[in-house]
Design a binder for these strands. Structure first.
Lengths: 192, 192
DNA sequence: CTTGGTTGTCTAGCGGTGCTAGGATCCAAT
DNA sequence: ATTGGATCCTAGCACCGCTAGACAACCAAG
């Protein structure tokens, strides 16, 4: 069945191409510029081909989000592993998180701002999303403090980071003192 | 010049009607349902009339955002004034903030998620936005702690609240333990 | 009382969007 | 060589934000 295998390989390759191209356009010109026409043209196929891979634009956003979640998990783990002691680990994690959001704004939006048709915080949540949260939990759980549920603490800390990331990028917060805000957050929230 | 005054009054009234109707549709069916056609139909005028009041849809969103900012400032001040002691004031403020976001999701989106063409954190920032931030600062500045700039502390605390509000409403955080998360935030961040 | 210009509003339409029905093309199996 | 199925494209739908140009209602000047 080599023929069928080859076709499936090609199909999978084209799907990756769609996702990568969508991401590329979004990072370059924003998600508004990711139209099905433009996307189709860039991959050199007609629009309906997109719909043989994804139900619609929302699912393409979702695919980019999953890709981003995997990368973010790796970035967070990488930063945490290079730091000594719980407090420094958390600080490194926070910086890595915000750095990821700043360097990949479109991907970050796909994950947390836009509707990618994904379910969060449930059993049927896709693995990459669970793993990204797990990556946060691994370092943050250590500094939750006595009597505080690690998962709940992670959620709260994450929310704070998310707020900083989104408000800063949307121009709601001046970007100058990000580092001070992060230190404030780490110093007060984390119990070393 | 009574005639001209009457015309201006009518014009102002229609402008309020546009903003109120936009808000109504948005709260009921989301901002995506606020189309210029639907909005025009609801106010019983044709589309171009909208453009004689606002440059475009973005400015209508901005107008809803300003209205919301005024209300949020009042809600926050009201909650804070009914509490004794800095710590309790901050807790009440946090609850009021999240409550406002939950009860007025479309308005909250207009303020902080969508592009309403507004400038934040600058000299030319519209008064209602500055005042909403000031309302937060009044209570939060008290608990910044020694050596921490009150404005910066307020921004950070606000970001944390914003993160909780948005992640919860977007289904990224389970809504069950909001109260515990708020208490965690207040207990750790606020220095009474 | 009639004109002429201003002001206000509407109809109609432009170029774009996400998405899909139906037809053309190609290739393996008969 | 013919058939049947998979694959892909052309063409189009209903909707979007926005605007040009026609048209009616009004007030001021003659």
């Amino acid at each position: 069945m080599s023929l069928q295998e080859r076709k499936e390989r090609e199909r999978a390759g084209r799907e990756r191409l769609i996702v990568a191209t969508a991401r590329e356009i979004a990072e370059g010109q924003g998600w508004d510029a990711v139209t099905t026409r433009r996307l189709a043209e860039r991959i050199e196929y007609s629009q309906p081909v997109l719909y043989s891979h994804f139900r619609g634009k929302r699912e393409i956003i979702g695919a980019v989000a999953l890709e981003g979640a995997t990368e973010m998990a790796a970035a967070v783990r990488g930063a945490a592993s290079g730091a000594n002691g719980p407090r420094e680990r958390v600080a490194a994690l926070a910086r890595a998180y915000l750095d990821f959001a700043e360097r990949n704004p479109a991907v970050y939006d796909a994950m947390f701002q836009l509707d990618g048709g994904l379910t969060f915080a449930r059993e049927d949540t896709p693995e990459p999303l669970k793993d990204a949260f797990a990556a946060l939990l691994e370092s943050l759980g250590e500094v939750a403090g006595d009597g505080v549920h690690p998962g709940l603490f992670t959620e709260t800390f994450w929310a704070a980071l998310h707020g900083l990331a989104t408000l800063t990028r949307a121009g709601r917060l001046p970007p100058e003192h990000t580092e001070i805000r992060v230190e404030l957050l780490v110093d007060r929230l984390a119990i070393a």
